[in-house]
Amino acid sequence: MFYRYFPLILSVLCVVLRTVDSHCAENPANQITDNGNIVARVNGIAVTEQMVLEQIDQIAMRAQGTIPPEHLAQRNLIFFQNGLESAINLALLKSEAVVKGITVETADVNKQINSFKERLGTEENYQKWLSSQGLTEEKIRKNEKLLENLLYQKVVEAGVEKTQPPDEEEMKRFYDENPNIFLQPERSNVSHIMLEMPANSAENDRKALEKKLQTIRADIESEKITFEEAVKQYSQHAGTAANGGNLGYIAKGQEGIPPEFEKAALETPVGKISGVVATPIGLHLIKVLAHDEQQTVPLDDIKETLRQSLHQKKEADATQHYFDSLREKGKIETVMTDEQWNARHTPKPSIKINPDDLKLDN
């Protein structure tokens, strides 16, 4: 529960999977040698600059693909507040461990290592992994990050109120009060044959590809070849050429689907093949395998998924409530201002040198 709802903290497994002295997703640029730069104090515990940077690394790792690469150079500015909040939460847990007398015992470490062994399948696989990483079990047992995370986990598990899965009445009430969540849009299950067409293709080349697809369509309809055989023989779509061209369900308004493709997928009758459809990646023939009109998904069809989701929401709320309570009773003091942090971490502009300026006079 702790790691599911507190994702900014280093996970135990991630720590174990790295070499003993490294951090998950370690960013060399974030290795500050002076750990004396204190950003905040939490119940007397110093939150250092390095602690905040470690949390920023974790946040940036999870944000990969969602922010432009050029912004990664400013990660320490963009994610400062998030990293600071996460580091403060860790300090709150460490303080609470002292107050409650919670410590990590040998049995806790054994349990975590046994869990890891189960993931690898056999003792032999575990030993091979240790050897490949240049590790020993003793080094893992003494890994500070592993011990810290086990401590955080124990504190949260001891402090967060236990929750129960929702009963039938709760699920029915949520289902009735949130009809839009369970509305399934109109959709079609489709397969396709695609011929690549570069964006700068000449008109004659385009017409030749269209004619080729029209001929393929005619051969399928006259039963000279099956659609699946045509996919195998002609389709240039790497992702589906090996599975009969199947794309699964295409829904109305689905993100990432070209409007021309969506229109043909939803309007072509079941069992029929569309005309030639042009998209930015090529020309297509689309065969509709099944079609569903817009409908509300029956509760019985998604009951277990809904049960898990609502239970996870309860656990998340309970965890958030716990951290809120720690903050309310804790003493949190900001030491380094935003301006001071920004001054230390604003990327310095690169200096462009004109090669001509480096020429020496004769």
Rank of each mutant, 00 (worst) to 15 (best):
E157P: 05
I302S: 00
G253Y: 02
K211C: 05
G83C: 10
S201W: 09
E186M: 08
E262F: 11
E105V: 02
G101H: 05
I78Y: 14
I113F: 00
P269L: 08
F79E: 02
V12H: 03
V39R: 05
D167F: 01
Q133E: 12
L358V: 12
P349H: 08
N35M: 08
L17A: 10
V270Y: 07
T334Q: 07
F116H: 02
P280Q: 09
N243F: 02
K162M: 10
I181D: 12
Q233L: 15
P269K: 09
D205K: 15
V160G: 03
E315N: 13
Q308D: 15
T337K: 05
L283F: 10
L92G: 04
R62C: 11
M61E: 14
Y126R: 07
L306Y: 08
P259W: 04
M171H: 03
K313V: 14
V12R: 11
E161Y: 02
L247K: 12
S11F: 12
E260H: 14
Q133Y: 13
T226L: 04
V42I: 08
G239H: 00
N149Q: 06
I32L: 08
Y322K: 10
I281M: 14
Y175M: 05
E54H: 08
K162F: 06
E210Y: 09
T215Q: 06
A158Y: 03
Q164E: 15
I250T: 10
Q294L: 05
E148Q: 15
A202Q: 13
A318G: 04
Y126M: 08
Q312H: 14
K211A: 12
D324K: 07
Y175P: 01
E328Q: 15
V297Y: 04
S350E: 11
P355R: 05
S86P: 08
G44T: 01
A241M: 15
P166M: 02
M61A: 11
G101E: 13
N189P: 01
K212R: 15
A251T: 09
V297W: 02
K142T: 10
